[in-house]
Simulated assay, not measured.
Amino acid sequence: MATLRFDTRVTQDPDRVWAVLTDVSMIPAWFPAVQEAHFDGVHRHLITPEGKLKAIVVTKNDELRRFQYRFVEGFPRPIEFHLGTIDVLPDGDGSRVVYSQEILPESLAPIVERAVGDGIEGIARYFATHP
């Protein structure tokens, strides 16, 4: 299984960061590959230049500020297992965002690594321009 982890530090309060990152409608503001996003109560639906992705929400824990999801449709090749995790942690006077992915088959890791790498950079950019 491929495991990937990215992180960034932002100067905003963890509750504010959490609110932005868990608002599905805000995903296009910080994740460059996503053009549109909505939540139907069970699944997050994302539209990218490559097509549509569908993910089920596994965990949304406001106390821990942990969000987890699994892609269930839309990858270019079948997924045996996927788990994406976003943690927002207090870090001094700001926040540390840790964005990790676990995926099988491992051959999908480069696709996920590029996308989530862009996503973590997008988080840093968003909060740098939205103090």
Score class of each variant (00 low, 15 high):
residue 102 E to S: 13
residue 86 I to F: 04
residue 109 A to V: 06
residue 36 E to Y: 01
residue 95 S to E: 06
residue 7 D to T: 11
residue 24 V to R: 00
residue 106 E to H: 04
residue 74 G to R: 03
residue 73 E to R: 02
residue 64 L to D: 06
residue 48 T to Y: 01
residue 69 Y to Q: 12
residue 48 T to C: 05
residue 86 I to A: 07
residue 74 G to S: 02
residue 15 D to F: 03
residue 124 A to P: 05
residue 87 D to Q: 09
residue 45 H to G: 08
residue 119 G to K: 12
residue 55 A to Y: 06
residue 107 S to V: 12
residue 48 T to S: 08
residue 36 E to N: 05
residue 107 S to R: 09
residue 5 R to I: 02
residue 100 S to R: 00
residue 115 A to K: 10
residue 97 V to H: 08
residue 59 T to V: 15
residue 75 F to Y: 12
residue 4 L to D: 00
residue 116 V to S: 00
residue 30 W to F: 07
residue 60 K to P: 03
residue 100 S to L: 04
residue 115 A to T: 13
residue 49 P to T: 06
residue 113 E to S: 12
residue 119 G to W: 08
residue 107 S to T: 14
residue 86 I to D: 01
residue 5 R to Y: 00
residue 81 F to E: 09
residue 37 A to T: 01
residue 25 S to M: 06
residue 50 E to D: 04
residue 93 D to C: 10
residue 127 F to H: 09
residue 106 E to V: 10
residue 62 D to M: 06
residue 112 V to E: 15
residue 110 P to S: 14
residue 66 R to I: 11
residue 114 R to H: 13
residue 78 P to I: 02
residue 8 T to A: 12
residue 7 D to G: 03
residue 8 T to S: 10
residue 9 R to E: 11
residue 81 F to V: 04
residue 74 G to D: 04
residue 45 H to M: 13
residue 19 A to H: 14
residue 83 L to N: 04
residue 47 I to H: 01
residue 3 T to P: 04
residue 118 D to A: 15
residue 31 F to N: 01
residue 76 P to Q: 02
residue 29 A to Q: 15
residue 18 W to Q: 12
residue 58 V to Y: 11
residue 32 P to S: 06
residue 109 A to L: 01
residue 57 V to G: 02
residue 16 R to Q: 14
residue 61 N to F: 00
residue 99 Y to M: 00
residue 21 L to T: 10
residue 88 V to M: 09
residue 79 I to C: 07
residue 7 D to R: 11
residue 60 K to H: 14
residue 59 T to E: 15
residue 6 F to Q: 01
residue 1 M to Y: 04
residue 106 E to R: 12
residue 95 S to G: 10
residue 1 M to I: 07
residue 73 E to D: 10
residue 111 I to P: 05
residue 1 M to H: 09
residue 72 V to A: 10
residue 118 D to P: 03
residue 28 P to N: 13
residue 41 G to N: 08
